[in-house]
């Protein structure tokens, strides 16, 4: 393109006058970007028009301060703006409504979430309790089976202990494993000892009568199956159970003898 010819054509003057078509305007603007001479020419033309329009102007514009409030309060002045105002109000109401709804929704979701969390905690606790129960049952079952196995052992001799004067309906059983030197006392048939007292088990030699303490049936009330394991290294001829003050006694209180059984000599 010949830039000088383009400038001389007079199109730039018309560009500044604003009488070109949109297409021509875009073309001139593009050339102005591409060729600095064209931009310089446009500026010079515009400058001349500015100079002429300024110097021929007999009108003093209002100060900008007069204009400024009009910029801020435009809404009330024109026809279009009240509609705009209404829409903006409408949309702001809508906005407020939406945000309130959102807040309520968020709060609802939050409380729901909290509820669910505490429910989960509760269920977890219940779960733990159930697991504990299962474990306890397992342990209890194991213990019972152990016990059963022990009692079924071929080396065991069973000695029934009958109720005595103090409590004729009482009874107990001793399962004695001589080889392991252990005695299991099944005290199911004894009444619960009063506070401050405890049952004490004795190994007895009959002639002469010599009692040897084998131990106490501690925590009688708390024991589920009322079977107590005790060591018995003695060569017992009989077993007796007496009620003694807590902690046990050195020698049996014979008038508090609850159950007594003689080992059969077979």
């Amino acid at each position: 393109m010949n830039v000088q010819e383009y400038i001389a054509s007079g199109i730039l003057e018309l560009y500044v006058a604003g009488v070109l078509t949109e297409k021509e305007n875009l073309e001139v603007a593009a050339y102005a970007q591409e060729y600095p001479e064209i931009m310089v020419e446009i500026l010079a033309i515009e400058n001349a028009i500015l100079e002429l329009t300024r110097k021929s102007s007999s009108v003093n514009p209002y100060s900008f301060d007069t204009l400024k409030p009009k910029l801020d309060n435009l809404e009330s002045d024109t026809k279009v703006i009240p509609m705009k105002k209404e829409t903006s109000n409408w949309s702001s109401y809508l906005g407020w409504a939406a945000s309130i709804l959102l807040a309520i929704g968020l709060f609802w979701v939050y409380t729901q979430n909290e509820n669910l969390k505490s429910e989960i905690q509760l269920v977890e606790q219940q779960n733990q309790q159930l697991e504990q129960q299962i474990a306890d049952s397992d342990a209890s079952l194991e213990k019972t089976q152990d016990l059963l196995n022990t009692l079924r052992d071929k080396d065991i001799s069973v000695i029934p202990l009958g109720g005595q004067e103090v409590s004729p309906t009482s009874y107990a059983k001793a399962y004695w494993n001589k080889q392991e030197e252990k005695v299991f006392i099944d005290a199911q048939g004894l009444p619960e000892p009063p506070d401050g007292f405890v049952y004490q088990v004795w190994s007895l030699k009959l002639s002469p009568l010599t009692p040897t303490s084998m131990g106490l049936l501690e925590d009688f009330a708390m024991d589920d199956n009322k079977v107590f394991a005790l060591n018995n290294p003695n060569d017992s001829e009989a077993f007796g159970i007496t009620l003694e003050p807590a902690g046990g006694s050195e020698s049996p209180t014979l008038d508090q003898l609850y159950a007594l059984g003689v080992v059969s000599t077979s």
């Binding site: 500015l50 329009t53 300024r54 021929s56 102007s57 007999s58 009108v59 003093n60 514009p61 900008f64």
Partner: peptide, 9 residues
């Protein structure tokens, strides 16, 4: 503004 006001007038 001066230019514009003048043109309007």
């Amino acid at each position: 503004s001066k230019n514009i006001c003048g043109v309007i007038n």
